[in-house]
Computed example of a mutant assay.
Amino acid sequence: MSSIPSRESLPYRDCVGIAVFNAEGNVFVGRRKSDDPEKSADYDAPWQMPQGGIDAGEDPLRAALRELYEETNISSVSLLAEAPEWIYYDLPDEQLGKALKGKYRGQRQRWFAFAFTGTDGDIDVASPGGGKFHAEFDAWRWERLSRTPSLIVSFKREAYERVVEAFIDIPQRFTHA
């Protein structure tokens, strides 16, 4: 029986999060794909915005654009904003030593907001990058930013509330344009 590492002994994984806004001021959310039907029962809310790790030496903005393309096939965007500080979340105790390859206590995320300048037809979560990348979502939709904390797994809810705070003014930019 392996012992669970202490939370304090594990670092946070540096990642990016991406809020992509369409012309109506709604954000892209994808439904997490599970290869294991039993695993999906572990998630109380499988919808989230794209996110992923920052590679060693990689600039966070570059990582955000890369992750967005790898998860959604979206490449037609323009930068709207960057959250003013890192946003953190911790894994629940039962996932420590298991999730995130067992190496991290959670994530430290740099969030970016982009305007989507393409068409919905550009989005391909089933075969992103023409099939070059592993599909992480099995469905997607546009959603109000304010609703995203209620769609995410509970342990990430506080982080999503901080994302909403950081980008609260962006949806109005579209509706009043």
Results as ranks from 00 to 15, higher is better:
23 A>N: 05
23 A>Q: 03
25 G>I: 02
27 V>Q: 07
28 F>D: 00
29 V>L: 07
30 G>K: 02
30 G>Q: 08
31 R>P: 08
33 K>M: 11
35 D>K: 05
35 D>A: 14
37 P>K: 04
39 K>T: 15
39 K>M: 15
42 D>W: 14
42 D>V: 12
43 Y>Q: 13
44 D>L: 12
49 M>S: 14
49 M>K: 10
50 P>R: 06
53 G>F: 02
54 I>N: 01
55 D>N: 08
56 A>D: 15
57 G>C: 08
58 E>L: 01
60 P>K: 04
65 L>P: 00
68 L>Y: 07
68 L>I: 02
68 L>C: 05
71 E>N: 09
71 E>F: 06
73 N>M: 10
74 I>Y: 02
75 S>H: 13
76 S>R: 15
77 V>C: 06
78 S>R: 07
79 L>R: 04
80 L>S: 07
83 A>E: 01
84 P>C: 01
84 P>A: 12
84 P>V: 07
85 E>G: 11
87 I>M: 05
88 Y>H: 14
91 L>C: 13
91 L>N: 13
92 P>I: 13
92 P>A: 09
93 D>Y: 14
95 Q>K: 14
98 K>S: 14
103 K>G: 09
103 K>E: 10
105 R>W: 03
105 R>V: 11
106 G>T: 10
107 Q>Y: 07
110 R>I: 08
113 A>R: 04
114 F>Y: 05
115 A>E: 12
115 A>P: 09
118 G>W: 00
119 T>Q: 08
120 D>Q: 04
121 G>P: 04
121 G>E: 06
124 D>Y: 00
124 D>Q: 00
125 V>Y: 08
127 S>Q: 09
130 G>R: 05
131 G>K: 09
132 K>Q: 08
133 F>M: 05
135 A>S: 14
136 E>W: 14
136 E>Q: 10
137 F>N: 08
137 F>S: 02
